[in-house]
Computed example of a mutant assay.
Amino acid sequence: MSRFANKTVLVTGGTSGIGLATARAFAAEGAHVIVTARPGRKVEADDGFELVPLDAADVIGARALGAHLAAAGRKLDAVFVNAGIAEFASLTDATEDLWDRTFGTNARGAFFLIQALRPVLAQGASIVLNGSINARIGMPNSAIYAASKAALISLAKTLSAELLPQGARVNVVSPGPVTTPLYGKLGFDADTLKQVATQIQGQIPLGRFGTPEEIASTVLHLSAPESAFIVGTEIIVDGGMSQL
């Protein structure tokens, strides 16, 4: 298929995991892909993406990106707001810094990026936010992270209402456990990480973790004309973990 031929799409956090898989999926269907990444991060040379250094919490940088695209007369047909952080702490151990850092990246960063990109959204553009099933389940130690993702689910509804007059819509894809580098960044040693992964896998009715490519396929569906009647909605992709 070439659903995105001659289209320009933006994927934040597009150098690894779900972001990279989604950027590659867009490119495979003909899109010109712009990916953002923290300064210093790189994408593989053979992917041919346009790389923009941008931290997900950098509102000034987001505005600069929007202004640059506007000055160049470029329009975005799809945006996948994927970049974010996942840090966990118990109610006892959680700090104000963790709260501010998590919401500053996952919620505040996403909101002001969309604000900055609004002038360069093409007619009929699609924005997909990367949520999480943590917003739907009561997992201990995930309160701050889960709340930041719940904020994105709310934003999909309110921002859709604001953007519909210009033909743009916002939806959420909420992954369950996925085999991405994120799990290697949780601060566990190898043995503990294996035990945690086994425990989580046992809670998934399908009996396995999802793949970044499976999440990417849902993002592309929500970004394509075929889903034009889907607005302000969350699609959960978790192997049944939060549903059964």
Rank of each mutant, 00 (worst) to 15 (best):
176 G>T: 07
151 A>Y: 00
118 R>K: 14
143 A>L: 12
147 A>S: 15
112 F>C: 13
162 E>Y: 08
166 Q>R: 13
119 P>H: 05
156 A>R: 02
128 V>G: 13
102 T>Y: 14
183 Y>P: 00
100 D>F: 04
107 A>V: 02
126 S>F: 08
176 G>N: 12
174 S>C: 11
145 Y>W: 04
164 L>M: 12
168 A>H: 05
180 T>P: 09
155 L>D: 05
141 N>E: 15
115 Q>R: 14
111 F>Y: 14
104 G>N: 09
137 I>L: 15
187 G>A: 06
197 A>W: 00
113 L>A: 10
115 Q>L: 02
171 N>M: 08
199 Q>G: 15
202 G>T: 05
182 L>P: 06
169 R>L: 11
103 F>Q: 11
197 A>D: 12
189 D>L: 07
180 T>I: 07
184 G>W: 00
132 S>A: 14
143 A>P: 05
99 W>V: 14
118 R>C: 02
107 A>W: 01
103 F>M: 14
167 G>A: 05
159 L>E: 08
146 A>E: 09
117 L>Y: 03
136 R>Q: 14
190 A>L: 10
157 K>G: 06
152 L>C: 12
155 L>P: 00
107 A>H: 05
184 G>P: 00
137 I>E: 13
190 A>V: 12
169 R>V: 13
179 T>K: 10
102 T>H: 08
191 D>R: 08
132 S>W: 07
185 K>Y: 01
126 S>V: 09
131 G>N: 11
129 L>N: 05
184 G>Q: 14
138 G>V: 04
203 Q>C: 01
106 N>I: 08
162 E>M: 05
159 L>Q: 09
176 G>P: 07
113 L>C: 05
150 A>Y: 01
134 N>K: 01
114 I>P: 06
169 R>K: 14
180 T>N: 04
188 F>W: 14
162 E>W: 04
194 K>P: 00
188 F>D: 10
148 S>Y: 07
188 F>P: 00
120 V>K: 06
205 P>M: 09
107 A>P: 14
198 T>V: 12
102 T>S: 15
161 A>E: 06
174 S>L: 11
163 L>G: 02
173 V>L: 11
187 G>R: 09
162 E>A: 14
118 R>H: 10
198 T>A: 15
179 T>V: 12
146 A>Y: 00
114 I>S: 02
133 I>Q: 05
161 A>Y: 08
165 P>A: 08
135 A>F: 04
116 A>Q: 03
128 V>Y: 10
183 Y>I: 15
141 N>F: 07
105 T>N: 07
103 F>G: 10
167 G>K: 09
204 I>G: 08
115 Q>D: 13
101 R>Q: 11
136 R>C: 01
182 L>D: 07
143 A>T: 10
190 A>R: 10
157 K>N: 01
160 S>V: 02
116 A>G: 06
101 R>G: 00
201 Q>W: 01
152 L>F: 06
193 L>Q: 14
148 S>W: 03
122 A>I: 03
102 T>L: 13
193 L>K: 11
148 S>F: 04
156 A>Q: 03
142 S>A: 15
105 T>Y: 04
159 L>A: 13
109 G>C: 09
138 G>P: 12
171 N>D: 09
164 L>Y: 10
110 A>T: 15
130 N>Q: 06
122 A>Q: 06
202 G>D: 01
